[in-house]
Amino acid sequence: MLTSGIILLEGGLLNPNPGLIFWTAISFFIVMLILSKFAWGPIVSMLEEREKGIQSAIDRAHSAKDEAEAILKKNKELLARADSEADRLIREGREYADKVRTELTEKAQQESQKMIAAAKDEIEQEKRRALDVLRNEVADMAVKGAEKIIRTALDAEKQKAVVDEMIRELAASRN
């Protein structure tokens, strides 16, 4: 134990050596100066340049992505608008067609009603005209009958009976 301690101390692990300090300091300092000018300088500036390059590439990629997303969004919007437009057009067409159809049917119905009404009117008029004709004919017949009666026997009673009969006949045919 003692020996090793003596060796450690005598061996001088911790001995100062100014010469070595001197040479280390000078050598290290000179090497540091030379290398920072000719080696680390260019390398570090290169690294910085590359860092900037990478950063700008990343930025560009990001902006391109944003742009693409914006375009995609716009496209989707346009597509949606076109879809709704088409829907609207179809719906409107359908509505218009419906309207036209109902209008047409209504018009047709009205027309037919009108036609039916006109036909009825005509029928009525024809009937009236026929009745008038009939009445004239009946009157003529009455006159003719009266003539006949007058010609055959013009007694009062007979005359009266004939007229009554005639009147009754007329009333029945009238109804």
Partner: peptide, 20 residues
């Protein structure tokens, strides 16, 4: 120390030159 400095200089200057 000098040997280390020499190695360091050789390596550093070679690399520095190749970077330039």
């Amino acid at each position: 120390v000098w040997l280390a400095c020499a190695v360091l200089l050789v390596v550093g200057l070679t690399v520095g030159a190749s970077f330039k």
